[in-house]
Amino acid sequence: MTSRLDARLNTQSPLALGVFRIVIGLLFLLHGTSKLFGWPGGPSVPLGVWPFWWAGLIEVVVGVLVTLGLFTRWAALLGSGQMAVAFFWQHLPKDFWPINNGGEAAVLFCFGLLLLVFTGPGALAISRR
């Protein structure tokens, strides 16, 4: 019975991966728009302020590319690296544990995007056409 379920689920893996990519991409995009434009929440960062404004710009570009499934592996690698840097620069000095230092989102984005580097975009990607 388990092998039948596995076989059926395996046929849907590309679609599930595509939906995962779209969700991660949209969340990353919103992470960037909140820094650059103050939307959907939070204050916007003044133009050019290092490193936050530049991080927001990377998040918007990577978020759009990952959501669309265009240059997914390269965009995800850039986004994953940026989140690793964000964790080590901004969160780790406060405390080791992400639950205590506010770095949970950075860790989740880092590893979610790193997964896309290795798996590719899945279904529903522009690069698949």
Rank of each mutant, 00 (worst) to 15 (best):
G120R: 02
F37S: 11
S34C: 06
F111W: 14
G120M: 00
V107D: 03
V62L: 04
S3G: 00
W97G: 06
V23A: 13
V107P: 07
S127N: 02
F88W: 11
F88E: 01
V61Y: 09
D6C: 07
K35D: 09
V62C: 09
W39D: 10
A106T: 10
L68K: 05
L116Q: 01
I58L: 08
N101C: 10
F118Y: 03
S34H: 01
A105I: 12
L5H: 08
L47K: 07
G120Y: 02
W53Y: 15
L114R: 02
F87C: 07
A105T: 14
V117H: 00
L15F: 06
A86L: 12
R129A: 10
G42T: 05
G79A: 05
D6Y: 14
T72R: 00
W54A: 12
A123K: 14
G56Q: 01
F71I: 01
L27Y: 08
G79Q: 07
G56F: 03
A106H: 03
C110Y: 04
N100W: 03
L47C: 06
L92A: 15
G122L: 08
K94V: 12
D95H: 09
L124I: 11
F71D: 05
I24T: 06
L115R: 04
A84E: 04
F109W: 12
F71G: 10
L77V: 03
P98K: 01
L114A: 08
W74V: 15
T2P: 06
G79H: 02
L115K: 03
F20C: 10
V66G: 11
A16S: 10
G81E: 06
S44H: 08
V64C: 09
A55F: 01
G81P: 05
G122A: 14
F96S: 11
I24V: 15
L65Q: 08
G63V: 14
S13H: 15
V85S: 05
L114S: 02
P98A: 06
L115H: 04
V19S: 00
D6W: 02
G79L: 00
P121L: 08
F28E: 01
S127D: 15
W89M: 15
V62S: 02
I126F: 11
Q90R: 12
G41Q: 13
L29W: 07
F37D: 15
K94R: 15
S127A: 13
P93Y: 07
F28K: 02
G48Y: 05
L15G: 05
T2H: 05
P98D: 13
F87N: 03
L65A: 09
L116C: 10
F96L: 14
S34A: 14
V60N: 00
A55I: 03
R129Y: 03
G81V: 11
G38M: 11
